[in-house]
Design a binder for these strands. Sequence first.
DNA 1: CCAGTGATTGTTGTG
DNA 2: CACAACAATCACTGG
Length: 135
Amino acid sequence: MKGGRSKAGSKNDDKLSVKQKKGKKVKDPNKPKRPPSAFFVFMEGFRKQFKEKNPAVKGVAAMGKAGGDAWRSMSDEDKAQYVTVAEQRKKEYEKKLKAYDNKQSGEIEEEESDKSKSEVNDEDEEGSDEEEDDD
DNA sequence: CCAGTGATTGTTGTG
DNA sequence: CACAACAATCACTGG
């Protein structure tokens, strides 16, 4: 079962888990989230497939188990392609961190009023490589 | 009505 | 060095 990797044997589960407690209402819209691991990258495609093969499945548990099972079934080389992608994701993540850091230095706190976002189609300028197809 | 839960593994962050 | 928390996903549930 799961090989030895898991929990590193921490018997004493005291209140060590204090959870970072996000009590602070610090809203960091620019704060980049952690890059997806190879497993998640693989899941990105797997989720779609799983849904198609199991449209009746509800919840994430079923998918998670199926995903984890399939993931371990893959060969390291097969996973390598996802790992490679994950590496790139991480790289971009670092870039985002830099941008985020830049904001911290430049824009300390920019409150944005909820202007009517009617015809104003303002796009985030960060994407740049986002292709949008018109329908 | 909103936010949390449940399960997966990997990666990053923090102590 | 070792652990802890979080990353996405989605349907459901409680207060």
